[in-house]
Design a protein around this nucleic acid. Structure first.
Length: 265
DNA sequence: CCGGATGTTCACCT
DNA sequence: GAGGTGAACATCCG
């Protein structure tokens, strides 16, 4: 599931349902899921702490912690890969709160916080492509795509001969855009994914910026990065919803790319 | 059975 | 240094 749209939904869930509850245990059923040298013993320092804020940068969910004395603790960084979900008290992204006390770990639960009230926060990830780390290097990520300014977007593209789509998905330049959102935004912007990123004119960058922010907002409202207008056409025989021409499939930036060579220039 | 899938990282090329 | 490619991770789906 996760591109930034889904991670924002997880952030919202965490903010609504996971803050201010005392952590009583850490679940690490899959140590491979702990990244950058993190080990279960290190996570024990979070016992007695609580989550104090839920932030997001691109596809990275950042959970701030606070000790019993009110002092700030380490930041818990969660990545969800392609199949990860955040589950709080047994519900993923749902409003209702049901504390399923002592609920056993599900088959694909890779990491969890147990609360002293009996509830829990867990990362469920069948494909195991996500991960957990402490104090992730946020500086390594570009500005978030949901709020990036025109100037920052322009700077992210400037001087690059890499394909536009590859640059948009380079998390160190711009954080949050994944394969589906990239195709949707470029299609809406009538820009070819293969254009050298630095070759866009000023009006084209403005157009891209407008569509990027509008698309992220709209897909968020619709409920996911898979709700784009192009989604149903990502298959053999798919046609452009704008002009009915056949869509083309290519590999750009190492990812399958669907686009309309008729109107995307 | 085979191929591909919303992501990231790394080794290895050019 | 920039950019590209393929592999790896593990499961599901068509």
């Amino acid at each position: 599931m996760p591109e930034m749209i889904e991670v924002e939904a997880y952030r919202d869930l965490a903010e609504r349902a996971a803050l201010g509850r005392q952590i009583s245990a850490i679940e690490t059923p899959d140590e491979w899921y702990l990244k950058r040298g993190l080990v279960p013993a290190t996570l024990q320092e979070l016992i007695g702490y609580q989550l104090s804020a839920a932030r997001r940068r691109g596809k990275l969910l950042l959970l701030e912690t606070q000790g019993p004395d009110g002092a700030g603790g380490p930041v818990l960084g969660l990545r969800f890969g392609m199949s990860g979900r955040l589950v709080v008290d047994g519900a993923a992204g749902v409003a209702e709160l049901r504390h399923s006390t002592n609920a056993p770990l599900a088959r694909y639960d890779r990491f969890g916080l147990v609360y002293s009230d009996g509830g829990h926060l867990r990362v469920r990830d069948p494909r195991r492509l996500g991960g957990v780390e402490l104090d992730p290097a946020e500086a390594g990520l570009g500005p978030d795509a949901a709020s990036v300014t025109l100037g920052r977007l322009s700077a992210a593209l400037d001087g690059s001969r890499a394909p536009l789509k590859a640059r948009l998905m380079d998390q160190s330049r711009l954080a949050g855009v994944g394969n589906l959102i990239a195709d949707e935004v470029l299609w809406r912007s009538s820009l070819s994914p293969q254009r050298p990123a630095g070759s866009l004119s000023a009006p084209e960058v403005r157009r891209l910026h407008r569509h990027l922010r509008a698309t992220v907002a709209e897909l968020g409202t619709r409920g996911g990065s898979h709700t784009g207008d192009l989604m149903d056409e990502r298959r053999g025989g798919g046609t452009c919803p704008k002009d009915g021409r056949p869509l083309q499939r290519d590999t750009v930036g190492g990812r399958t790319t669907w686009w309309c060579p008729w109107h995307q220039e």
